[in-house]
Design a binder for these strands. Structure first.
Lengths: 194, 194
DNA sequence: TTCTTGATTGACGTAACAATAATCAAGATG
DNA sequence: CATCTTGATTATTGTTACGTCAATCAAGAA
């Protein structure tokens, strides 16, 4: 090799390579295949585990339980969520297909107020409203009364019609002559978000 | 091809291939690299969480979601008769987009029981469960306690963990040493049908 | 003395691959 | 007719291969 001018740093360094154990986990690793849905939990668990191993004091529950004790600890309890007789996964579900019967006549409305809490409809819930559906007595409807939109349960008896709240703090309203009632649509579903 | 004698079963079967979702995990998988020492724990955890769901009807979110943006009306329409062409039309909303953050990790479970009515979750409701989401204190979760599923509100304070009902008729449960808790997923939405 | 440099090696995440598993419907058998 | 078999079809799974990134080295430059 001919002479090198200046600006010739570097060069061979036998044995200079990265040292074993210098990686994130300081130990050998393995490649495994896991369900996509489990990836975040496993990663989080590894992260918290690495911190603990680093000698730093970490609260065991600082991170979410799903990243917790992958090892199980064992107890029992009954209650809460009895399972149906069916087993295993059924067919997949598409929300648009499952919740929308008449696409051209379906609209969403956000609930304001709490007059329907007895029916499990709360402030902020999203209502799926089907305008192609014929309203029947007992159904929850979007109604227009004297130009104002409201969510109520429709009651029809003979020629008499009511809009009933599902909260005792609100009055029932009977539709009388001279009152303009329009049933705008029928509430098919209510979606509450957490 | 000349004539076939007997003993000629088999043959072409277009479309006969293995169905999607027929694997051990019934969902897509990913390959990740983890420390060798963590492999047994992760495998055990995957096994146990799969077992826990064995008797429950769970529906995965469709792998081919339809697109159906539908109009979202403003909550307060002061005057007139709302119609699709109205100015009051705030936005459009697609349920598959709006309600599903992690498609591959989203599953649906139907509620049985009434321990969570205080949170607006009633018997028969359809829960949208996000399994990729980290559970935090205060969130409603699907939890596995000794192979039994339950829907509860998770409470974490320091090192203590509880599963709380939202109905005074049911007891709160504190997770103690030796108890086996797995958070199967976080409840993102509840859908009530009318 | 500190920083830079080209080279050396280990670590990591993903792609690629092959074997296995699940599914299909026509044909064979009892 | 009911059940099993068959060859083909397709998804899943675990492992290996691969390329990029990261950590380390010591001579040279400032």
């Amino acid at each position: 090799m001919t002479q090198r001018t200046s600006f010739s740093h570097g060069g061979l360094r036998p044995g200079s390579g990265r040292k074993t154990g210098s990686g994130r986990y300081a130990e050998p690793t393995e490649v495994i295949r896991i369900p996509q849905s489990a990836v975040p939990a496993v990663r989080a668990w590894l992260d918290s585990r690495a911190e603990a191993m680093g000698g730093v004091t970490v609260q065991p529950f600082t991170s979410a339980p799903s990243s917790l004790p992958l090892p199980l600890f064992g107890a029992r309890i009954a209650a809460g969520f009895p399972s149906p007789a069916d087993d295993h996964l059924e067919d997949s579900l598409d929300l648009n297909v499952h919740l929308v019967q008449h696409p051209a006549a379906t609209f969403f409305v956000r609930v304001q107020g709490d007059s329907m809490t007895g029916a499990g409809i709360y402030h902020g819930d999203l209502l799926v409203v089907d305008r192609a559906r014929q309203a029947k007595s007992g159904e929850i409807v979007i109604a227009v009364i004297n130009g104002e939109l409201t969510v109520k349960r429709l009651k029809i008896e003979g020629e008499r019609v009511w809009l009933l709240p599902e909260n005792p703090h609100y009055p029932a309203l009977e539709i009388r002559d001279g009152m303009e009632l329009v049933i705008w649509g029928v509430v098919a579903h209510a979606v509450r978000s957490f």
